[in-house]
């Protein structure tokens, strides 16, 4: 596969703060490449530099062969960006927004309306074509923003946190649209802080923390890094406060993740630790409701690789003021 994005030593600092720290990576044509990391990791700053919205402090990137520093207009002609906040024009209808975008991107006059109608159809927005953008639901706004980014047939689509703030059904529908776009040959670069989203959508993932890439690989290969890890998940009727510390003091337990009344134990020897865990529960008079052994997930690999609590990845960024 051809390399359609090449990033060389891309860096951005704001005063003494290094937001993006000498990143280098490639993206292959036709793949979905994901930037996975917590809020503040530098994902959006990286995307903004790559699309020409933010000036890098040093380094550069080549998008479809064009240098982002020397040929920004050609780069922009080749890409579509869907920012985290859907920022179309509230007063214009769905159709008008698409046609305006087509005008700005130099789509031929006779093709503009046909292309706009085609995208409205593909994105399930046909019945909303005469509705002003500001009257659409958040999920529909997101769809229209993606459709707008595709109006000029870009080769690469950048999606910044595409499903943030959407309800479950809208997010699922959007993920299907993203996969459908990939099938049509589009290269997709997306950022997300949802680990399952990265796992289900991306061909390759770069895990980024504090402006640095920790690993780039397929989700399968990243998970295989923790294949020796065994996971025991136990559901309890309640979890008393002192329990976690007592569990951590048991031999053979690497990490504990608590999600409501379920506890996940990361260990290298499940047979060794299970009896002592059960004994501790009995002493604490907590009742076990379920017990399962699990294969390591991408979330487990993420936790191991970054040392971060996976709960951190469940926190959404505060939404910016805007038409969304």
């Amino acid at each position: 596969m051809n390399l359609i994005i090449r990033v060389n030593d891309l860096t951005k600092s704001y005063g003494p703060t290094l937001a993006v720290d000498h990143l280098s990576f490639d993206v292959k044509e036709g793949e979905i490449f994901g930037f996975l990391g917590p809020n503040g990791a530098g994902k959006t700053t990286t995307i903004r530099m790559m699309v020409g919205l933010t000036q890098p402090s040093s380094g550069t990137a080549f998008i479809n062969g064009y240098d982002i520093l020397k040929e920004p207009v050609k780069v922009k002609q080749t890409i579509g960006l869907v920012p985290e906040t859907s920022n179309l024009y509230g007063e214009l209808t769905s159709l008008e927004n698409l046609i305006y975008q087509a005008e700005l991107y130099g789509v031929a006059r006779k093709e503009r309306k046909d292309r706009a109608l085609q995208l409205l159809e593909e994105f399930g927005l046909k019945e909303h074509q005469e509705k002003p953008f500001q009257k659409l639901s958040r999920g529909l706004k997101r769809r229209l923003t993606i459709a707008t980014a595709l109006i000029h047939h870009p080769k690469i689509l950048f999606l910044d946190e595409p499903t943030t703030g959407l309800d479950v059904m809208s997010a699922r529908g959007l993920r299907k649209l993203i996969l459908d776009s990939k099938k049509k040959g589009l290269t997709i670069f997306l950022t997300t802080h949802y680990i399952p989203e990265a796992e289900s959508l991306c061909d390759r993932i770069a895990i980024i923390v504090k402006g640095k890439i920790r690993i780039i690989d397929t989700p399968q290969n990243i998970k295989s890094l923790v294949k020796e890890m065994e996971i025991l998940e136990i559901g309890l009727d309640r979890i008393p406060d002192p329990l976690k510390n007592k569990l951590l003091s048991l031999d053979g337990i690497e990490k504990i993740l608590i999600d409501e009344n379920r506890i996940r134990f990361h260990t290298k020897n499940i047979d060794q630790v299970t009896p002592s865990i059960i004994k501790l529960f009995e002493e604490q008079r907590v009742k076990m409701e379920t017990i399962n052994t699990l294969s390591p997930s991408l979330e487990d690999a993420f936790v191991r690789l970054t040392g971060l609590d996976s709960d951190l990845m469940k926190i959404d960024k505060p939404m910016k003021a805007g038409p969304e």
Binding site: V51, G52, L53, V73, K74, K76, Q77, L81, P83, T85, N87, L88, Y89, G90, Q101, L104, Y105, G106, K320, A321, G322, P323
Partner: peptide, 15 residues
Amino acid sequence: KRIGALERLLLAPLE
């Protein structure tokens, strides 16, 4: 600027 739409113009292939 406030609604973020100026960013759309900056992103378009325009001088």
